[in-house]
Write a protein that binds this DNA or RNA. Structure first.
Lengths: 217, 217
DNA sequence: TAGATTGTTAATCGATTAACAATC
DNA sequence: TAGATTGTTAATCGATTAACAATC
């Protein structure tokens, strides 16, 4: 039943590397280049093996030219298309605190296909205000707004204790994917996709580094 | 030259899994338990193989008892000790915007050994204010405060364009580790440890899921 | 005791890297 | 052309899982 040609499913490691290639080429290479980049250039900057770069690009159908490399435009276009950046997906942010506000006002997610259409907060004092140009609504309006805007994704930026309850409201409202910034695991039906940003895992790595490096506490 | 006993260096995957065990046992198991947890319990909740849990715990010197499992207190203590949560490391936050403010006022990092001693911002209107009980200083005070408090870690929460320049100031001030939330790679000397939180990599995974799931944009 | 669970070695699996012919 | 670089197969490496004796 699998399709014969084209990538069928990329694993998470490949998706992450593609995103790194995309950033790298967008930020550091495209501007001052001949319009082409070699796998060795990318590999050196990302401290990886060039064969792996070629394999990843082959997996999404990007063909290079011997002695020339890969077209940066084609490479970026293929990554955008593969990862879905050319679609428009609508999202809401649950929790209009500092973190929710930071995400709402960042403005950098639009280029990855994400439109933020509403914020929600349980604090009546915040309802009616705007953050980053996005209006703050009461939780009671969740179902109506999700239906009206056909929202795909919810960004969860609430305290740990509130996370599971709100996740259940989101599932009830028909949300298909949750980007969870709350430091708490969520239990949701298997048809709902959850990406949990474990910020404190990064802190663990730093603490471990400091301890091992002999930093004097 | 390597020490004979005890873990010498854990790789990043192990460190991350240890943090997941720690969270799981702290949040979901310790409270309603006999004081013990089996590798199979942990493995089931984290959707992994129980052998791997035992191997990770063995690597940090935690011994279990057949038919009983692992002492939750001993397990958590060993993880805390291994990852350095029992030390006190001092940090500063560069960028007192919404994200920096969210981190300063979160208050949940103290239990991992991290004390936030100062915020910095280039906006004179913010200097002198406090966020989460932490005072905001001008960048000019960086060297003095780093020296005075013997700061180990800097959390970088500034716009992409400002990140590299500030990273260089941090290196100059003697910072040993940078937790980078700016969406830009940093170039620093090899003796400075950088953990880059690539938030948009998470977005890439979500966008790819939505595209593949057939969500109508 | 019987049997649940650990601890550890061996086997497997999957991801990365090496090798090298093809190509422009 | 010569040679830099791709594309791809084979080899390697490291992480995970299976197997199972030890143990409480």
């Amino acid at each position: 039943m699998a399709k014969r040609s084209g990538p069928h499913t990329l694993n998470q490691l490949v998706v992450e590397r593609l995103m790194h290639y995309y950033h790298l080429v967008a930020d550091q290479i495209e501007s001052h280049a001949s319009g082409h980049v070699s796998s060795a250039q990318i590999a050196q900057l990302l401290e990886m093996d060039d064969t792996l770069v070629r394999k990843d690009l082959a997996a999404i159908g990007v063909r290079g030219r011997p002695r020339v490399g890969f077209s940066t435009a084609e490479l970026m276009g293929a990554i955008r298309e593969t990862l879905g950046f050319n679609e428009r997906y609508r999202s809401i942010i649950i929790g209009a605190g500092r973190l929710g506000g930071a995400i709402a006002s960042y403005g950098g997610f639009g280029k990855y296909g994400l439109d933020i259409v509403a914020l929600f907060d349980s604090d009546p004092a915040r309802v009616g205000q705007t953050l980053g140009g996005v209006a703050i609504h009461p939780i009671e309006s969740l179902n109506a707004i999700v239906r009206e805007h056909r929202v795909h994704l919810a960004v969860l930026t609430v305290p740990a204790d509130a996370a599971q309850g709100l996740a259940e409201l989101l599932v009830g409202a028909g949300i298909q994917a949750i980007w969870n910034f709350a430091p708490r695991s969520l239990v949701v039906p298997s048809n709902v996709f959850v990406r949990h940003e474990h910020i404190s895992v990064g802190l663990a790595e730093l603490a471990y580094y400091l301890k091992r490096s002999g930093a004097r506490p």
